[in-house]
């Protein structure tokens, strides 16, 4: 016999679906809006056109911004993953008493408001001439992405027996060889998935980019904010839709990586 639905489980169900709706509705609204024919944002959209997508792909300004963001995100992914993995290794395996201080510093960028970090980096980069340059963006974004790399790889590294490396060393491997041949392959799926995260975090980052962008060097989110202030055409939902597709693809990739690691 099927048990009767009680009020508690009804309320829980309603709550869960409300939360899901709040998460999904913006996506459901933004995607149709990108196909609207009118020059201004409207919902529900009227007509159907791909011209906003065409504008995005043909406009020089959008292309430049996108290319800059891709460069920055790619380099950030590499830097954050290299530094983050090395730092995580020191944190998880190191015997030093500084480990906990180290941990706080590494996850600091999550706690510090981005605006504070942005202002600080802006003033600093202005004086040393890094503002508006690719290395400047990469440095700043690496700081923001590091905590996510550290969290992801620390979880994976914690599950790898530290004695594996000791065993490899007793077999004649140097510490570096032991890490490269034993530990790294075992945590690689998490390292790759943390690189994906770092990429998204950089690609999507508006606050620090707002401060660091120059007249010509603008990242995609910075350019989008500019367009929202000045034009607010459906090219914004068109780009948003493309970004959603990209993010979902990357997240699925990261998920596939991690489930491979688990099996």
């Amino acid at each position: 016999m099927k048990p009767a639905l009680d009020r508690g489980s009804l309320a829980l169900g309603a709550y869960v679906y409300t939360v899901l709706a709040f998460v999904i509705i913006p996506l459901v609204i933004i995607i149709p809006m990108s196909f609207g024919q009118n020059d201004h944002l409207e919902f529900p959209p009227s007509g159907f056109t791909l011209k906003w997508y065409a504008e995005y792909f043909t406009s020089r300004g959008w292309r430049n911004a996108t290319w800059l963001s891709i460069q920055v995100a790619f380099l950030t992914a590499i830097c954050a993953t290299l530094i983050g993995t090395a730092a995580t290794y020191a944190m998880v395996r190191g015997r030093g008493q500084l480990a906990s201080l180290f941990q706080i510093l590494l996850i600091g960028p999550i706690i510090v408001p981005h605006i504070a970090l942005a202002v600080g980096l802006y003033l600093f980069f202005q004086t040393i001439g890094l503002s508006g340059t690719v290395p400047g963006f990469v440095l700043a974004h690496t700081v923001l992405a590091l905590p996510f790399v550290v969290f992801t790889t620390a979880a994976a590294l914690g599950k790898v027996d530290a004695n594996f490396e000791a065993a490899a060393m007793s077999c004649g491997a140097t510490r570096w060889t032991a890490f490269r041949l034993i530990t790294l392959p075992l945590i690689l799926p998490s390292v790759v998935s943390s690189a994906f995260f770092a990429f998204i975090i950089s690609f999507d980052e508006p606050v620090v980019s707002f401060f660091l962008s120059g007249v010509r060097q603008k990242t995609l989110p910075r350019r989008m904010f500019e367009d929202i202030e000045q034009n607010l055409t459906p090219v914004i939902p068109a780009i948003a839709t493309l970004l959603i597709v990209l993010s979902v693809a990357i997240l699925l990739g990261a998920y596939a990586m991690r489930s491979r690691a688990r099996s």
Binding site: D161, N163, F164, A166, A167, S170, G172, A173, A178, P185
Partner: peptide
């Protein structure tokens, strides 16, 4: 260093490389 000693070592938890 451990890797230059040429001694055999067996650990408590097997420590076979799982991959």
């Amino acid at each position: 260093p451990a890797n230059k000693r040429n001694l055999g070592m067996v650990f408590q938890n097997y420590t076979l490389f799982p991959h």
